[in-house]
Design a protein around this nucleic acid. Structure first.
Length: 579
RNA sequence: GGACCUGUGGUGCAGCUCGGAGUGCACGCCGCCCUGUCAAGGCGGAGGUCGCGGGUUCAAAUCCCGUCAGGUCCGCCA
């Protein structure tokens, strides 16, 4: 028999670990009163809840305990009388009798019910998060998260990675996401920032000879929040030397598959791979959700010489919505609004009927065009065809967004479909000065076949950057890094960063690279998101103990708050008007 | 910075279109009854700035404007 690690000075056992095997034993448990059911002067049932579950204690009616009192109960483990067994309870066959009850702490009535019977308003939950955490959902989620963390650590350790901690107080780098700023007390008017990721630190560790580094790292970004984005989030951050992309994908796969196995009980058999170009073309996003079809189909050739004005565009993309002919006009209007909101000129829709097409545009179509639309993706009567005509990238993006909006199942439904998206473009879009913007970051190694294009056709250069995607969520991304000064110079030049500016911004990294930088590559993926999907939660707040609201407030502590003038003075800070 | 949804005893909702007394339901809370319940049951009770401010009106939870908070999304997130 295994040692009972749960026994402490105050208790012998966890509530729900007691079974019929212990019948007759006198045991002590500790926990909260989950429920009290009174049956007159000399009989009451109290459910005692600890982290393992609940256990029923039979007590005298005079025992005055109320919901959420903290109690220590000593009693005899007994079989429940015939006919009173509760199948719904792990401990439903037993109960504690002849109990003595010690009240360790009394409790006010909680501001909301702690069972999972009703949804509680987000504000109320967050204001009293410490109570919310007692609920089964939060207990399950955070314990699941702990198991995932442990599995990830074990996988990295097994693969020879060394866990190294990197600073939270770091130097500002005017690149990428907005940083949280920390004023320096000892250096007037100067600031640290909290790292948006340990990116540069881990590359320096490579130069430092830690050829396999990892860390379960907190990252901080002062950007607007979303269901899958908090100011602070946790990543498995890793970097390795003397490797290529293939090695990194394998390292990360091991960690993710191990995590999936402990979380779901099943080890996923495959992680798909597709290029970024494929993902955009077929799914209209760089984070495709492979749980469902509704892929995008290119009709550009068929409509090349069309008379239909709405379709006179470089690219015509279509998507079949199974059963979508039932969509109401207002639903179609709202989809059209969404398409326009994303930059499309409009959204064409065609309901496929037994006799043909039903659409405001139908009368403008040639017979050939009509037959093309009717056959999109094997359409049958009752389906809906959505068409966007525009520049290639925009048509893909708009239809891709509609695909997710219409077809995406809830997080908890369907299989877990992992996919590596590779060959991201090196650059995307132009900044205000007309220079290309690094899609990943400026230290990303271009694809070896595209090195010659850096100067001639930068926007077509592919990079050795890759994302891991699960069910439409971007879990994380990584890249092979540039370790050669000549290639780095060419990339800086393409980005419009002068040597002086590069020295100013990244001098300490580039300087380090002069002393022997090994070829290296790395990755980082978000543990909040991974656990949220494992837990079937739509929002990462549900897997974070103390999250912030969408406006960045902590409703429990009241943060952010003003600080005393004395403290401001010490930091050499003066609030501007309105503060 | 923008769009949309929500805000009504402690909690979750209904009431809002079509203005007419703080009206209703469920849970919780308090008291009494009840010896086998487990979402216990029965009886009784307390508990409200209808988020806040302004406007329209004889009259506003309800209509209008503004504002705050929470949520979802766009922008943003190298």
């Amino acid at each position: 028999m295994s040692t009972n690690y749960e026994a402490t000075s105050l208790r012998d056992s966890l509530c729900a670990t007691i079974s019929t095997e212990q019948v007759g034993q006198r045991l002590t448990v500790c926990g909260w009163v989950a429920k009290r059911r009174e049956h007159g002067e000399h009989l009451a049932f109290i459910d005692i809840r600890d982290r393992s579950g609940v256990l029923q204690a039979v007590v005298d009616g005079s025992v005055d305990v109320r919901n959420e009192y903290v109690v220590r109960v000593t009693g005899t483990v007994s079989r429940r009388p015939e006919g009173t067994v509760n199948d719904k309870l792990a401990t439903g066959e037993i109960e504690l009798t002849e109990c003595s009850v010690e009240i360790l702490a009394t409790a006010d009535a909680p501001p909301f019910q702690l069972d999972d019977r009703v949804d509680i308003d987000e504000q109320v939950r967050l204001r009293h998060r410490f109570l919310d955490l007692r609920r089964d959902q939060m207990q399950r989620n955070l314990r699941l998260r702990a198991k995932v963390n442990a599995a990830i650590r074990a996988a990295m350790d097994r693969q020879g990675f060394c866990e190294v901690e990197t600073p939270l107080l770091w130097a500002p780098t005017p690149e990428g996401s907005r940083e949280f700023v920390v004023p320096s007390r000892l250096h007037h008017g100067e600031f640290y920032v909290l790292p948006q990721s340990p990116q540069i630190a881990k590359q320096l560790l490579m130069v430092g000879g830690f050829d396999r580094y990892y860390q379960i790292a907190r990252c901080l970004r002062d950007e607007d929040l979303r269901a899958d984005r908090q100011f602070e989030f946790t990543q498995l951050d890793l970097e390795a030397s003397f490797v290529t992309q293939i090695d990194i994908l394998e390292f990360v796969s091991q960690a993710v598959l191990d995590a999936a196995e402990v979380a779901t009980g099943v080890r996923p058999t495959t992680i798909d791979t597709m290029t970024w170009a494929e993902a955009m073309d077929r799914y209209g996003v760089d984070k495709p959700d492979l749980r469902f079809g509704m892929t995008l189909h290119d009709l550009s050739d068929a409509f090349a010489g069309t008379e239909v004005k709405a379709f006179a565009a470089p690219t015509v993309k279509a998507m079949r919505v199974e059963g979508g002919a039932e969509f109401t006009r207002s639903r179609l209007d709202s989809l059209t609004d969404r398409a326009k909101g994303l930059g499309a000129k409009g959204l064409a829709w065609f309901k496929v009927t037994e006799t043909g097409l039903e659409s405001p545009l139908d009368r403008f179509l040639s017979d050939h065009e009509r037959s093309i639309i009717q056959r999109v993706d094997g359409a049958v009567a009752g389906d809906l065809i959505l068409v966007v005509a525009d520049e290639y990238a925009l048509a893909c993006k708009v239809l891709g967004a509609l695909r997710v909006e219409i077809g995406s199942p809830p997080v908890g439904q369907g299989p877990h479909r992992y996919v590596w998206v590779t060959e991201f473009p090196m650059f995307e879009g132009l900044d205000d000065d007309g220079n290309p913007v690094a899609a990943h970051h400026p230290f990303t190694m271009p694809h070896p076949d595209d090195l010659d294009l850096i100067e001639t056709d930068p926007m077509s250069v592919r990079s050795q950057a890759y994302d891991l995607v699960l069910n439409g969520w971007e879990l994380g991304s990584g890249s092979v890094r540039i370790h050669r000064a000549d290639i780095q110079s060419r990339i800086f030049a393409a980005l419009g960063i002068s040597p002086e500016e590069a020295e100013n911004r990244f001098g300490f990294l580039l300087g380090a690279f002069k002393y022997g930088a090994p070829p290296h590559a790395g990755f980082a993926f978000g543990i909040d998101r991974l656990v949220a999907i494992f837990a079937g939660e739509e929002n990462i707040r549900e897997v974070i103990a103390f999250p912030k609201t969408q406006s960045g407030a902590d409703l429990m502590t009241g943060a952010p708050k003003s600080i005393p003038d004395k403290q401001l003075k010490e930091l050499h800070l003066k609030p501007s008007k309105g503060a």
